[in-house]
Amino acid sequence: MSTETVAAKKSEALFSKRRKAIVTDPLDDDNPVTVQVLGICSALAVTSKLEPTLVMSIAVTFVIIFSNLIVSLLRNAIPQRIRIIVQLGIVASLVIIVDQVLKAYLYDVSKVVGVYVGLIITNCIVMGRLEAFAMANKPYDSILDGLGSSFGYAWVILVVAFFRELFGSGTLFDIRVLPEAYVNNGLMTSPVGAFIIIGIIIWVQRARNGYVEEA
């Protein structure tokens, strides 16, 4: 994976144009799910209801930001030859902490998302950001990059979950919104429904931005 270094000027404003771009790029033009097509596994798996999806988004945000921060702080100390396993160790530890905290304080949610929380370790977005950004940039920029990437991931899976829960169960956050007469669409509760919705999101986004995959 190539390393992107964004040249930083000395004494730069806290929210300079360059830094804003670090946060906003992954939300749309460089979205990890719809453009880079990473993290699809969890995007399909946890999005059948909004509540677990929200928890998953928060968990991923926490893991990306803190792993970005830690790796960025250690970027000059981490031996190049074992950097992947070091990153993996840091990510895995953060994920285990999230999992343990969920088990202690949000047991019901953890029963639903528990399996997938463990899989954050292998979420390509996390490792991707570490390799591509945190290893080469300063801590503050890395936190911003983490924020951008995780929000880019979060909004996509929340939109998917919104439609899946609405049409699959007729509810939003387990509160009934569609009339009882509505027959639940079984396709939406299965991962296939998520595929279709992500496909539609990608379609709409690319039609709007004119993004074309390089051959």
């Binding site: 160790g89 902490i97 343990q100 905290v101 304080y105 047991y107």
Partner: peptide, 25 residues
């Protein structure tokens, strides 16, 4: 040395988390 230090530190943090949350879980 880096690998050993990392293992010890991460292991320590994780066991501390596990022990302190065990009761509540």
């Amino acid at each position: 040395g880096f690998a050993v230090a990392m293992t010890v530190i991460l292991g320590g943090i994780l066991s501390f988390t596990a022990v302190s949350l065990n009761e509540r879980q």
